[in-house]
């Protein structure tokens, strides 16, 4: 039922479809740019039956490369962080101006190679940004949920944790045992009861 296509194969006129992922438009034709199966998704709102000529009623066409296993589906070797992607990263270095992090998950998918990102001090939280101190927000080894705000310079993606849902999600205390969040800026060790400061992500 779903046909297999190769790059360069025409899928239909550009006027009849909205191009999705894995396709491009050339000579007013939707052309596949991946090897995979053609997936056509009808327009989301079926209520607009009156305006059939509008472009919003066109189905979205995309080419999807199927994955063999769930593990393979969870990883993607060709995935790159993009602006507004939600990433998981591990803090590697900190200094007064920024925290450097290694990105290993982009949009819930494990990447092939880890990317380097930085969280600058002004991007740590939304309010009172001039009072933020990196040392009371992150520590090396923390796992942080962050958002990509820029592709950055040649080596670093710029990340931000300026949102309630963003920040440290896993951290170990100075003595090395795991901590749980107690409020938006503190985490407590499960074993020793020691409290440390972090920019904590709001649990879902």
């Amino acid at each position: 039922m779903t046909s297999l296509v190769v790059p360069g194969q025409p899928l239909g006129p550009a006027s009849a479809y909205i191009p999705g992922t894995g396709v491009h438009i050339f000579n007013n034709q939707v052309i596949a740019s991946l090897v995979g199966q053609v997936v056509t998704v009808p327009p989301a709102s079926s209520s607009s039956s009156s305006s059939t000529t509008s472009t919003s009623t066109n189905p979205t066409i995309s080419v999807v490369k199927p994955a063999l296993t769930p593990e393979e589906e969870a990883t993607s070797a060709t995935l790159l962080p993009d602006v507004s992607s939600i990433v998981l990263c591990r803090i590697t270095r900190i200094n007064a101006r920024q925290a450097t992090a290694s990105i290993f998950v982009v949009n819930d998918r494990v990447v092939g190679d880890e990317f380097q990102g930085v969280i600058r001090v002004q991007d740590v939280r939304l309010t009172e940004i001039d009072k933020v101190k990196i040392f009371t927000s992150f520590r090396p080894g923390d796992i942080v949920r962050a958002k990509v705000i820029s592709l950055g310079d040649q080596s670093n993606y710029y990340l931000s944790t300026a949102s309630n849902e963003l920040g440290v999600i896993m951290a170990n205390s100075e003595s090395g045992d795991q901590m749980y969040p107690i409020n938006w800026k503190e985490m407590k060790s499960a074993r020793t009861g020691a409290v440390e400061e972090r920019k904590v992500a709001k649990p879902f």
Binding site: P7, G8, G22, S33, L34, V35, K65, A77
Partner: peptide, 11 residues
């Protein structure tokens, strides 16, 4: 390149 899943205009 096609096996890698890298998007191309044509083979």
């Amino acid at each position: 390149l096609a096996d890698a899943g890298i998007e191309m205009y044509d083979l």
